[in-house]
Amino acid sequence: MEQFAPVKRSKDGQPVRYLIVDDSVFARKNLARMVESFGGHLAGEAGDGLTAITEYDRTHPDIVLMDITMPQMEGIEAAERIVQSHPDARIVMVSSVGYQENIVAALQRGARHFVQKPVKPEVLYEVIKYVLGDDGAVATAAGAGV
């Protein structure tokens, strides 16, 4: 896999903490593997929207990667609810082309960005850097940067 220069939190230089929400264990593993290759840290996982909300409250991650179609509660509703109680939440929707309307809806409800499935690491990397904005810093120390 490609090497990415680690992205850290600019306020304390700690790894960026992620909450990954997807009903497919496989997809979660896959995403976790990617964010770890960006120097991130997996703060929590959830397989449905309801769990996502409680996990958010528990872990206060820097970034949420949120699937759209999930049992119990859809990603959109979960995103909306999280943003309602945490306006600074950075939620990135992860879904396939077929659910574009849902992504639009999620963006209207406060999601910060979206990536298309299948997720390409280099795309996710850029998206994460963008979503973190000033709160993220690319560590220059680590070898080959992108």
């Binding site: 009903d23 497919s24 264990v25 397989g47 449905d48 769990t51 179609t69 999930m70 049992p71 119990q72 509660m73 859809e74 959109i76 509703e77 309307e101 849902n102 639009v104 809806a105 209207q108």
Partner: peptide, 30 residues
Amino acid sequence: IPAVEEPAPAPVAEETVSENTAQPHTTLAE
């Protein structure tokens, strides 16, 4: 999807209903 309508919310509401029939494996996997 007629352009005049707000297309997004309608499908969302529908999808949420279907989530009650969650696949067993997804709830199990937690």
